[in-house]
Amino acid sequence: MSRFQREPVKLVPVPSPNFIPERDVDKTPILEVSHLGIDFGGLTAVDDFNMAIGRTEIAGLIGPNGAGKTTVFNLLTKVYQPTRGTIMLDGRDTAGMNTIQVNKLGIARTFQNIRLFKALSVMDNVLIGLHNEMDYHLPSAVFRFPSYWRSEKIAKGRALELLSIFDMQDLADAKAGSLPYGAQRRLEIVRALGTNPSLLLLDEPAAGMNPSETTELMENIQKIRDTFKIAIMLIEHDMSLVMGICEGIGVLNYGKVIAKGTPEDIQSNPQVIEAYLGKKKEAN
């Protein structure tokens, strides 16, 4: 495949106002998290987590294994309800909302352990992401009213367009479970983009990818940000990716933020080095 020398993909505007509304590109943050925390019984998994992400920012969340990074994602998407703290998306408090409502408000995510609809086709996976962008009702589906055909046609075109970001439009009819690992990760991103998010959460997008795939993924993440004008927050262990594309980075250890700042700040932060490599033994 012509992975390394393909032409840049152009996204053509679709004839529906539902898809990608012009996003407000001002300086107020899309996500504001303050004093977020959750206890599992006696165990405090995340405590006093504060973060703000700009509207078109790429933010990274790093930390050693078990630091609570995925828990933060699960809190943001309300897979877990937080014990403390507030999550404001686009100025709206998400307290009391569930996963579905938060998604409709604009948070989409991928999963660390890939959760695709494996027995369905690639196209169907993306169309499920586009579920709420289609607006026909059940009777229209049963009796095949014109609104069904129109909506399905727009959605299918949209799905192919989204797949073309990763050059996957040729795979539309393949079974999602039969894709190679890297393609499955990419498909998950496409499906998440289908829900028209304003904040995209990527949980270890580069896990299991080789260096050239990772480089390509970096370019694609930036391209997604530039095309869709959305904020992206990612958890990643691949430091070349994190340091390469993230504009702001938060470091989590034992459920607490131990450092925040630009990639340069983080790289030279002694606490971060300590968290990853351990403390230097005092000279005797």
């Binding site: 998604n103 989409a108 995510r109 027995a119 499920i128 059940l138 589906a141 499906r191 289908g194």
Partner: peptide, 23 residues
Amino acid sequence: KSRHGRAILSIRENEIAAESCGI
């Protein structure tokens, strides 16, 4: 073969992922 049917299939396949797609 409609969005409703795909939503039903997505529940069979992976309920957490279905919810995260806003279903």
